[in-house]
C-alpha cells in the first residue's frame, strides 16, 4: 500500500473499515449512492454529499476465479474476485472467501466481512449467504 493512503477522499472509508463498518456516500441532491468516495457526485455534479453505512448485503454482479495471479498473490491461487452490487445501490470489487464448496456465481447473495489483507490492512471481503 502506498504511503499516500488513506487520502482526503478515502480516510473516512478506511476508518469505517477499521471499525467493521462499510461506509459509502449518498448525493443529497440526486439521491444516488456514490462509490468509490468522491468530493463530487459523478451523476449530477453536486457536492452536497453525506456518508452512510451499508448493510453489507448484496449480490454478485460478476466474478472470476484467478489462476494466474500478480506476483504478490501467487501463493493464494485459486481465489475468487467479484464485483458486488450492494443493496444500497452501489457496486464495489471484493474477494469472495469462506465459501466452503458452495457454487459462487453471478446472482449469488453475499454479505460483507472484515479481515486483514495481504499487507495486514483491515479490508472488506464477502462471504456467501443462503
Amino acid at each position: 500500500m502506498s504511503d499516500e493512503l488513506p487520502d482526503p477522499d478515502s480516510s473516512h472509508y478506511w476508518e469505517g473499515i477499521s471499525n467493521s463498518e462499510l461506509r459509502y456516500q449518498l448525493c443529497n441532491s440526486c439521491k444516488k449512492s456514490i462509490f468509490y468516495p468522491r468530493s463530487i457526485c459523478p451523476t449530477c455534479g453536486g457536492n452536497d454529499i453525506s456518508w452512510q453505512v451499508s448493510s453489507g448485503l448484496g449480490e454478485i454482479y460478476a466474478c472470476s476465479t484467478i489462476y494466474r495471479a500478480p506476483p504478490k498473490y501467487k501463493d493464494k491461487v485459486p481465489y475468487i474476485v467479484a464485483l458486488i452490487d450492494l443493496n444500497e445501490g452501489f457496486r464495489m470489487m471484493s474477494e469472495i472467501i469462506d465459501f466452503e464448496g458452495q457454487v459462487v456465481s453471478v446472482g449469488k447473495r453475499v454479505q460483507v466481512t472484515f479481515r486483514d489483507d495481504i499487507d495486514g490492512k483491515p479490508t472488506p471481503y464477502f462471504t456467501t449467504i443462503d
Partner: peptide, 11 residues
Amino acid sequence: GYQYETPYGLP
C-alpha cells in the same frame, strides 16, 4: 481510485 481494487489481487 485503485486503492479500492488493489487489495483483491485482480490481474
